[in-house]
Amino acid sequence: MTQIIIIIIIIAILIALSIGLLGMLKGGKAGSNKMFKSLVIRVALSLSLFIIVMFSAYMDWIEPNVIMMDAFSFQ
């Protein structure tokens, strides 16, 4: 569940970033506004995603990709 939410937010960030690109492409006053707004949204989303990931890790909903070698009984 947490993973799905994380992936959805990543997709939303990518969309916001792309809309920003389209704004830059358009140029002028309108394009500049569009670019700025969507980039603000992308920054806000990124920060929330970071907090969500840290919080889920703290709550043990997700596990990091880190394993000590001692965890394995070989050799």
Partner: peptide
């Protein structure tokens, strides 16, 4: 951000 999430988490 993508790296952090997919490589580390």
């Amino acid at each position: 951000l993508g790296l952090f999430i997919f490589v580390y988490w």
